[in-house]
Structures are given as C-alpha cells and as structure tokens.
C-alpha cells in the first residue's frame, strides 16, 4: 500500500511501487493535467511539483515521493476560479495545442513559490527544461512575467523582443 499526498489530499493506493508518478496521477487519481510527452525527461510536459521542486513525473517512481506533497495544475485553480498563472496564460493566449502548458505552469509556479520576483535571466534559465512544440515560448514567458512583475519590454541578450506575440 502506497500513501500519496496530492494537492494536500492523501490517498492510499494499492499499486506497483515502481509505477511512475505520472501514471498514478493520470490513471489512478484521474488528474489528467500533467501529460505524457517523451517519457525520457526531455520535454517537461509531465512536470509537477514534489515538495518544493519541479520534477519530471514520468521519471519519478511513486514510492520515491514519500511524505512530500505533490502539486499538480489541478491544485492551482479551477475553470471557474483560475489561479494567477492560469489567468495570465489565458490572458496572453499562451497555449496553442496546450499539451505542454500544465508542465510549463507547474515549473513556473515552483520558481515563483521560491522567488516571487525573479529576474528575466532567472526566469529563462529556470524554464529552460520545458519545451513547447508549437513554439509559443514567447507568450508563455510573457504570461509568467505578468505574475512575476517583470517588465515585458526589457530587451535581453538572448533574443529579439520585437517578434513577441506574432
């Protein structure tokens, strides 16, 4: 029997201890926000927060979670009452196909929990592991900047800002 706390709710589950956390969330708890992307820790679609760290849930055995609280996108808000990041992602229309978004938001949430006002550099380096096949990265970053209180118009060394939102 595995004890698992997800979004502050505890569950007792009769499951294989080596089952990846992602499968438990989706198939046992019906929390379908986190997605299966690559299964290799390369894309970040499965990102959830475990304890205070963003992790690839496709590569984390459920028995490795222990007493740490798991937070998923479902814990941040609902369709009626979206959380701050969710609201910003809607405002900036940051999703195209939307497959990566739950992972993007959870990785961003982990950063903001630790550091509510990161710099542009910190934001970019923190978000680096998560990929978006549709290339909406600029809108994703814009949405997170809103919540983090980072100015949208500050040019960086990394990329031209002129194409933003196009």
């Amino acid at each position: 029997m595995i004890q698992l706390t997800v979004n502050d709710k505890s569950h007792s589950l009769e499951i294989d201890p080596s089952m990846p956390l992602l499968y438990v969330l989706r198939n046992k708890l019906e929390l379908n926000g986190a997605k299966f992307g690559c299964g290799l820790g390369q894309c970040g679609a499965c990102t959830v927060i475990v304890g205070d760290r963003p992790v690839f849930s496709c590569l984390l055995p459920v028995s490795a979670v222990g007493s740490r609280n798991v937070r998923t996108i479902e814990g941040l808000g609902t369709a009626d009452k979206p959380g701050a990041l969710q609201t910003a992602f809607i405002k900036h229309q940051a999703a195209q196909c939307g497959y990566c978004i739950a992972g993007m938001i959870m990785r961003a949430q982990a950063l903001l929990d630790k550091n509510p006002h990161p710099s542009e550099e910190e934001l970019r380096s923190h978000m680096e592991p998560n990929l978006c096949r549709c290339s909406t990265h600029m809108r994703i970053l814009a949405a997170i900047r809103d919540v983090a209180g980072i100015r949208q118009d500050v040019p960086t060394n990394h990329s031209p800002q002129s194409s933003e939102g196009d």
């Binding site: 080596s18 299964g39 820790g41 055995p61």
Partner: peptide, 19 residues
C-alpha cells in the same frame, strides 16, 4: 534500487529502451 531504477532510469538505460 530495483524499484527506483525501473521508473527513473529504465526508460533510457533499460534493455531494449530507445537509448
């Protein structure tokens, strides 16, 4: 370790895995 490896490592390092 067997349990950990199965979920955390085997998808790349296990036998027959893509890697």
């Amino acid at each position: 370790g067997t349990v950990m490896f199965a979920a955390a490592c085997a998808s790349c390092h296990g036998e027959g895995s893509p890697m």
